[in-house]
Design a binder for these strands. Structure first.
Lengths: 222, 222
DNA sequence: TCGAATGGAAAACGGCTGTTTAAAACGCCA
DNA sequence: TGGCGTTTTAAACAGCCGTTTTCCATTCGA
């Protein structure tokens, strides 16, 4: 056989621990012990801890970007030559995100990892993601541009990142927020429920009125 | 004199390094060397690394929550007995956030720290913040409730966190995003500019239409 | 049956971590 | 001036880190 299930065991354990405690706070000994695998196996199969982290991401992002690309193919040919409506695009993005980890029941892990990628590791993960998946992201952005022709390019750029922040921040801090919400409102909150609540907020944010022009008078204060 | 500037030197250096690299990735030797202070000074003055981290947060959050409380006092007495309008509340929150680090020109650090508090340190920082500043936050939430009487409580809870995510995520990842934006649109983005863009998006998100009711039929799929 | 290749196991490597100790230096008041 | 808290200093502590090396077990094709 080409390779045992050691690689899979390491990845399965690593993604959970990374999501729980972060990259720096999770040691290789921590991972290999829980995975019931020898310490040296990580460096043998992946080369280094950094490469392991990237492998964890790739296992989610490769199928995700592939799915999203295929979905955009399908939508473009269905709507062509008219642009894909914004709601459809957002809806498709959501379901592409949902489908991938559904196979492993680990949406929470996926979202936590995304959140960590943006805040930890001095951005070396951010760079990796941008290099490997920037093309797909750019394609999605281009579709959104066609769907929102009245939005200036800069404004759309920032709003997309605002919305990315809304989703990633919420879903990556889900456990903590859910604790508070459940205690306060005695109502269990599922991920599907949260996405249902996110949908109108994100759509409204993207289509909000343009900001007022910057006033020169307010500048010298700070 | 009560105590030298060693404490201040440590805090000034620590907050910058924490914001740049995270808590776990920043060592005490790293801090004390750059601050030109003896290694043992941290444990002498603060007790532990954890306590140092909390002190860094307190130096921002104490004046912030005090300012916000005073501002809410003022607004309540000005508008009473009618509720404070939502736009005014959001505006006040923004300027309270802006005022505090303006004294030290470190809004970026402040935001990065907030972002880290939510994603790192296994939430022990999140707990600290909730214990020490939860009361102020709750007061603000109560004001928002008066301003948005038609919003169900659960919905308002989540939307506030959505908006918190938007702002914290954007401003804490500011440097990275700014790099992309500046390269792509050749237009420098200041923090004030970003807040100008955030305002209508946040307002629209809070006032978005209510989500459709959950459909039982859509559940078995995932 | 031999030899090579592959994967796993145990041990050790140097280096960095947060924390503690004990002694020295300092400023202040009597 | 002498003594006394307070602060700073240098050194050492035990422990964990990622990585490397060495050796053993297994498998496969010639």
């Amino acid at each position: 056989m080409a390779q045992s299930d050691t690689v899979k065991r390491i990845l399965d354990t690593a993604e959970v621990l990374f999501a729980e405690k972060g990259f720096a706070e999770t040691s290789l000994r921590n991972i290999t012990t829980r995975a019931k695998v020898n310490l040296a196996a990580v460096n043998y199969h992946f080369g280094s801890k950094k490469a392991l982290i990237q492998a964890v991401f790739a296992r989610y992002l490769d199928p995700f970007s592939e799915r999203l690309n295929r979905a955009l193919d399908e939508l473009e040919s269905r709507y062509s030559p008219t642009p894909i409506p914004l709601e459809v695009l957002l809806e498709q993005l959501a379901s592409s995100v949902l489908e991938v980890p559904a196979e492993r029941n680990s949406l929470k892990v996926f979202m936590k990892l995304l959140g960590l990628a943006y805040t930890q590791a001095q951005g070396h993960m951010r760079r990796y993601i941008q290099v490997h998946y920037g093309e797909t992201f750019q394609r999605f952005v281009d579709c959104v541009r066609l769907a929102t022709p009245d939005l200036p390019d800069v404004e759309r750029f920032w709003r997309l990142h605002f919305m990315l922040g809304t989703v990633v921040f919420t879903l990556s801090g889900l456990d903590a927020l859910r604790d508070i919400a459940d205690n306060e409102y005695h109502e269990h909150t599922s991920v599907r429920d949260l996405i249902r609540r996110l949908r109108p907020v994100v759509a409204a944010g993207m289509q909000a009125p343009l900001p007022e022009l910057p006033t020169e008078a307010a500048r010298p204060a700070v």
